[in-house]
Amino acid sequence: MGLSALGFSTAGLFARLSGTAIWPMIVWRDVFGIAGLLAVAVVLREPILPGLRLTIASPRGRLIVLTNALATLAYIAAFAQTAVADVSVIYAASPPIAAICAWIMFREKPGRRTMACMAVCLGGVAITVAGSLGHGRLPGDALALLMTVLFTIAALQMRTTDAPPIAVALLSSALAGVLAAGLAVASGISLRVTPTAAGWLACFGTMSLAIAYPAYLAAVRLIPAGRAMLISTMDLPLAPLWVWLACGEAPSGAALIGGAIILAGIGMETAPVPAPSRRPSGELQNTRS
């Protein structure tokens, strides 16, 4: 999950460096990413065709593919509409969103401390979004929130299916690329990119799809979804850092405050609970008497 977070943290950087419109960016990112995924599958000796058939044949597998594809569209579109720091801060609130989704989908009622964490993290998101008012970043923040919800739902669903992670990643990427190509044609946007942009998009696809995506999908099947989301918040400090160093895009004050609040809320959830103190047996007997 840590490897996944590191790979995903470079998404905003490569999106900025490519300087490409949204739909061509998604198409070429997915082309290069699918090539990288196939290479990973060959190295790992992953049975690709059986995995693809199993995923397509499963209604839940098809739902996960669709959810991931839509999340991908929202994810990359968000970078064009708002700051990378805002996207990272909002995605960092995925632990409480995962708890809410698990509550709705599986009736897994969170404990009191988790509910307190949820309230604090959502407050951090509200502050970040409020900072976008009047700056034209609100649509991008809304897309980032939609992306977070969709990715969380897909992560929870992955725990209930036998669909192989690499097969899910391949199908999700292919579907996202097809949808983006259709939207580009409908909008009259050319899919041509410069060689420099193609190089950055190759890095984008390799890091986010060939490395981060399979690691993420595999991790959510091995550890609880809430813990997986907590580890994934490594993206919060890293993504804005890369963009700030390379492009000079500094996070807003609201994003810094919101991010700090979210990290505090996550710290509340992950802090160890002290074991209840035990009194000597003699004292217990005296109390009973």
Rank of each mutant, 00 (worst) to 15 (best):
residue 177 G to F: 01
residue 146 L to F: 05
residue 158 M to R: 14
residue 173 S to R: 11
residue 133 L to G: 13
residue 141 D to A: 10
residue 182 G to K: 05
residue 182 G to S: 06
residue 182 G to E: 03
residue 142 A to L: 15
residue 158 M to Y: 03
residue 178 V to F: 11
residue 154 A to I: 05
residue 163 A to F: 00
residue 153 I to R: 03
residue 134 G to A: 05
residue 159 R to A: 12
residue 145 L to I: 06
residue 156 L to A: 09
residue 170 L to N: 08
residue 166 I to T: 13
residue 180 A to S: 11
residue 123 G to W: 02
residue 162 D to L: 15
residue 165 P to Y: 02
residue 181 A to P: 01
residue 156 L to H: 10
residue 128 T to D: 02
residue 135 H to G: 15
residue 130 A to W: 00
residue 154 A to W: 01
residue 138 L to A: 13
residue 171 L to S: 06
residue 126 A to S: 13
residue 132 S to H: 11
residue 178 V to W: 08
residue 123 G to H: 03
residue 151 F to Q: 15
residue 168 V to S: 07
residue 123 G to I: 05
residue 150 L to C: 09
residue 128 T to S: 12
residue 151 F to K: 14
residue 122 L to T: 07
residue 126 A to Y: 00
residue 150 L to K: 09
residue 122 L to E: 09
residue 155 A to E: 12
residue 154 A to L: 06
residue 137 R to N: 13
residue 167 A to M: 06
residue 172 S to K: 10
residue 126 A to D: 08
residue 136 G to P: 01
residue 164 P to Q: 08
residue 168 V to T: 12
residue 170 L to T: 09
residue 160 T to I: 15
residue 156 L to S: 09
residue 125 V to H: 01
residue 168 V to L: 12
residue 130 A to S: 10
residue 148 T to H: 04
residue 140 G to Y: 00
residue 173 S to M: 14
residue 133 L to F: 11
residue 139 P to S: 07
residue 168 V to Y: 01
residue 122 L to Q: 09
residue 169 A to L: 11
residue 172 S to W: 03
residue 129 V to E: 04
residue 128 T to H: 02
